[in-house]
Amino acid sequence: MKSNFLKAAATCVVMALATPASALTFVLDFDTVGSSDIFGSTTNAFNSSPFGFSGLTDSEIKLGVLNTVTEHFRSYPTVGLNPSSPLPVGQELDIDFEIGSIGSAPTNGDTDYFFMQIGTAVPANPGLFGQACLSCVRNAAGFGPNFGVTSGDVVGSIYTDAISSIAGLAADNDQLFNLIAGTTSHEIAHTLSLEHAGAQAVNPGQSAWGVMGSGATSMPSSQRVLDREFTYAKFGQLIGSVGLRDVTTAPEPVPLPAMGWALLAVCAGLGTYGRRAKKKAA
């Protein structure tokens, strides 16, 4: 959920434009007790018990959420695999994610970092799944931080006690990851200038709604357990906000001609070529 305060600030305050940063890190804090975000909202440590994860330790659950968030921003198909994508081949968003503690700099050494607190709301269940400031980390042109926010601030909160109220919609652990990670990515994207999607829109995920879909704009909760991705338009906005860098993982395959695909399918026994080796939930 966007902060009405900073949404108004985005339209009414003249920003002091900073030099666009070359890198950006979001640190996910699951464990700090009594931490507060820039709005004064307080959370205690994340409690996984109400979700009903099967056969996973707390550390594995947190890592699963981190990986799913990272995939939303960093595993988007390039135009080489999906002609509708705004992402060039061999490029990825210039953004990183890790698990850490509020007040401690990320282990990657990045000096431009912000925290998202993920845990039980105090007082419990505030009636929303999360909140974050709009455009406070970067605006759509890539400038920031803005509105008095500085590196090291807690720019949003994810209320897992509220999210757990719909955990019964999930069929497996991956779908449970999607419930938490979907809200987390949604709120992070608010800080990077993205607003709510008002309707269904085309995206490369399973869901008819992108990551910026919201119950406030009529998205049913059943969509939250699916593999939601940013819509092509919203991801294009992220590119303007965060910038790009060369891919730091294994090179992405270059699309083959139609006949080449047919031969590959026959030889390798593949029915289709997906963009991920491991299916994830959103």
Rank of each mutant, 00 (worst) to 15 (best):
K2I: 12
S3Q: 10
A8H: 15
T19D: 14
A21C: 05
A23H: 06
L24T: 12
T32L: 02
S36P: 00
I38L: 14
F46M: 04
S48E: 11
P50R: 10
L56M: 14
K62C: 00
L63C: 00
G64R: 00
V65F: 08
V69N: 07
S75F: 12
P83L: 01
P86L: 06
G90T: 06
G90V: 09
D96G: 06
I102C: 04
A105F: 01
P106W: 02
Y113D: 10
Q117I: 15
A121M: 04
P123A: 04
P126H: 03
G127T: 10
L128W: 10
G130Y: 09
C136P: 11
V137Y: 08
R138Q: 09
R138I: 06
N139C: 00
N139D: 15
N139R: 03
P145F: 03
S164D: 03
G168Q: 07
A170H: 00
N173I: 11
Q175G: 12
L179F: 12
E195M: 11
G205E: 01
S207P: 12
V211H: 08
M212D: 05
M212F: 02
L226Q: 15
R228Y: 01
Y232T: 09
F235R: 01
I239D: 11
R245W: 00
R245H: 01
D246E: 10
P255A: 08
A262I: 13
L263C: 10
G271C: 04
R276A: 10
K278A: 13
K280N: 07
A281R: 05
